[in-house]
Amino acid sequence: MSFVSVRNVFQTYGRRPIIERVDLDVTEGEFISIVGASGCGKSTFLRLLLAQERPTRGEIRIADAPPASEPGLDRGVVFQRYSVFPHLTVRENIVAGEGFRRGWGRFFGAARRAALTRADDTLARIGLDHVAGHYPATLSGGMQQRLAIGQALAARPRVLLLDEPFGALDPGTRQSMHAFLTDLRTETGMTVFMVTHDLEEAFKLGDRVLVFDKPRWDPHDPDVNGATITYDFDARNGGIPFQTLEEKTHVLHPV
């Protein structure tokens, strides 16, 4: 049984279809990269996975739970920007990962001390212990994204969703973030969905690479068709692309 199952999902804004007929099965612990041209529904699909939006048709289940109606603890997310709370220090941001679910959104007394200790451990692991007392605005882009990932993981989600998390970083920082993310994954074995514009990054990090595109294109009315998963690549084996074609539905197969 698949861990994340997407069944015949359509999403329409007004009369404009964005994505249509998306089916997907993901086993626990897989890293799924999602690529595609701008406006091809990658981010919409991620919002659907996040339950920030509900699909017009079809359903998305995680671990056989009923389809979620709003974002919750089982889905962690890191956006390209605004992923950490600017009014909390780095340490408090990590504590928030565990504390926000509580009645007052914070820990008190002994629980607070324990949470702070755990946060310091997390910070040491993600290499931010030297800036624990700083506010995120004083951190570099790479450090902010590391903090955002650390914060999302502190909540222990079932699935981690990344929306172009390294899009705003310079190439060097990006490389170190890749290593950081790979390490974290080996440690936690988490299921990850990552939307990216960078094909190399998609194949390097992902176990599978999904391509979103419009299978049909009406030159007179480009908006009449929605996008769907047109390719589903196996991207394991050192990230060398195009070994195995896993997609069965919407592509022409070599006879």
């Binding site: 996040l50 920030q52 709003e70 974002p71 919750g72 603890l73 889905r75 962690g76 997310v77 956006f79 920007r81 605004y82 992923s83 950490v84 709370f85 928030a96 990962g97 926000f100 679910r101 959104g105 914060q151 999302a152 909540a155 989600p157």
Partner: peptide
């Protein structure tokens, strides 16, 4: 993004 993030942390 911040509001969604807070929701994913269970707030």
């Amino acid at each position: 993004e911040l509001l969604v993030k807070a929701q994913t942390l269970g707030a």
